[in-house]
Amino acid sequence: MKILVCVSKTPDTTSKIAFKESNTQFEEAGVQWIINPYDEWFALVRAIELKEKDPSIIIHLVTVGGADCDPIIRKALALGGDEAFRINADSNDSFFIAAQIAEIAKQNQYDLIFTGKEAIDYNSAAIGGMISELVDMPYVSLATLFELNGTTATITREIEGGEEVAEISLPVVVSCQKGMAEQRIPNMRGIMAARTKPLKVVEPAAIDTLTSIVNFELPPAKAGCKMVAADNVPELIRLLHEEAKAF
């Protein structure tokens, strides 16, 4: 059985968000890069757990990006991936990225493709759904539990106002979130092993870009917090009701 886990490089969750070049580019100076938390904590770790139960499982990793992605791919390999692909292209267009990954997926015939539920930088929650269409597999989004029995998966996912449990024959594409697995840290053995695991750099396929970023904006600064004295709770409620019209 072969699993493909899609990982992307995102700014650390505490990063200061700023822009340069007349707000057309993200300011990368001083930013720490991490594996997108949903990709790492939930998609990758769940794949590793499945491999721990069945060591014949092979885990491939894929990312679309430049050489600056290599450290996060090495970390993902240290956690437990077997082999990685980096598609050497820089793009913010979901379709371009998904179509590049779909090319890798078509060549390698995966039984399972895992993504995080969204990336914490562009928050589009789009890659998994697009890949599934391009490789013509069923898609289960926002999964919180994933169990495998032979070639059938039992998946719990979040839906409007609750959750749904479903059975699906592989192959399937799944977007993963909290509940799927618990965060891990790589151990020394994993880090050593990761150095010699294959990281293949592939040139991108010819794919159209359908969207582009014109510029960025920061939200307007808040007017500041109006403080109410602790012994004047009725005033807070009056402000919320009359001034903010919040209820």
Binding site: I17, Y122, T211, L218, P219
Partner: peptide
């Protein structure tokens, strides 16, 4: 974008 910390204008 950036979990509500900014906006992007996309063409």
């Amino acid at each position: 974008v950036f979990s509500g910390k900014a906006f992007a204008n996309i063409s």
